[in-house]
Design a protein around this nucleic acid. Structure first.
Length: 110
DNA sequence: TATTTGACGCTGG
DNA sequence: TCCAGCGCCAAAT
């Protein structure tokens, strides 16, 4: 598996996130079998943030904080998109994160 | 070419 | 229950 394909894989999973749902870097990393490399998922999303096809705003850290909003076109873009989809965001944090959490391992089934 | 840093997560004390 | 350290990979300097 090439390194680039790993990035593409992250993008694919991000695209699969249903509207109004969110997931974490670790969940994606775990689904891809690189749970320890959750940081790399963040790097992948860094490039994805500029892509309109990849909903990078639906990916946050394990506690539901918009840690990567600063990497978007505008720092407010992330929470605006989330709220538009029905996800409540307060102080850069997703409310009821567990209720909106979307685990690829569970939803997609391995 | 080598070192540091970064959108993270888990285990251990 | 809270704080600190380690692992892992890629990109930038």
């Amino acid at each position: 598996m090439d390194k680039e394909s790993f990035f593409q894989d992250v993008y694919e999973v991000a695209k699969l996130i249903p509207k109004g749902r969110v997931t974490s870097y670790g969940a994606i990393a775990k689904y891809l079998g690189v749970a320890r490399s959750a940081r790399v998922v963040g790097w992948a999303m860094n490039g994805a943030s500029t892509l309109d096809d990849v909903p990078a705003h639906r990916v946050v850290n394990r506690i539901g904080v918009l840690s990567g909003k600063n990497h978007f076109q505008t720092p407010t873009r992330m929470e605006e998109l989330l709220e538009k989809e029905g996800v409540k965001v307060k102080n850069d944090q997703i409310l009821d994160f567990e209720k909106h959490f979307w685990d690829p391992m569970t939803e997609l089934g391995l």
